[in-house]
Amino acid sequence: MKKHFKLQDLDCANCAAKMEDAIRKLPGVNSATVSFMTQKLTLDADDARFDEILQEAVKICKKVEPDCTILVK
């Protein structure tokens, strides 16, 4: 399953790269892209575990940049 999420308060391109790298290493993730320019996360992950993987991605973003939020609808 592939979904796009808006990022709020992502202030640094280097942080975006760190987040992307860490999210890609999560089990069940097929691909992940964090774009500093568009302030978006594109996550392609295992359908059965998507919500669990998304929660881990949220934790990673908070760890790398505490002010950044993934807007999950």
Rank of each mutant, 00 (worst) to 15 (best):
M1D: 09
N14A: 06
V72G: 03
P66K: 12
A45P: 00
N30K: 15
G28Q: 10
C12R: 08
G28K: 06
S31K: 15
Q8L: 09
A57Y: 00
D11G: 13
I70H: 05
A48L: 13
L71I: 13
L71M: 10
D47H: 04
L10V: 06
C12E: 01
E52M: 11
N30W: 11
V34M: 06
R24W: 00
I23D: 00
D46A: 12
P66I: 00
T69D: 02
L10M: 09
H4N: 06
A32K: 10
E65S: 11
A17K: 15
C68Q: 04
D44F: 03
V58F: 02
E65H: 08
Q55D: 12
A32D: 05
D46V: 05
D9V: 01
D44P: 06
A57C: 09
D11H: 10
D44K: 12
K18S: 13
V58W: 00
G28R: 08
A22D: 05
K25Q: 12
V29R: 08
P27Y: 07
K59M: 10
M19K: 02
V64D: 06
M19S: 01
A48H: 15
V58Y: 02
K2V: 07
T33G: 12
Q8A: 08
K18R: 15
E56Q: 15
S31H: 13
D9C: 09
A57W: 04
C15A: 12
I70E: 02
F5H: 03
I53K: 01
D21Y: 07
V34F: 08
S31P: 10
M37W: 05
R49K: 15
L43D: 07
Q55K: 14
A22N: 11
M1E: 08
S35Y: 00
K6R: 13
V58D: 09
P27S: 14
E56Y: 00
F50M: 07
K25C: 05
K3A: 03
K6P: 00
P27N: 12
V34I: 14
H4G: 02
A16K: 06
D9I: 00
G28A: 03
V34W: 02
K63S: 14
K62T: 05
F5T: 11
D51S: 13
I53N: 05
D9K: 12
R24H: 09
K40E: 15
K25L: 10
D11M: 14
E52V: 09
E52H: 15
K62H: 14
E56M: 12
K59Y: 06
D46T: 11
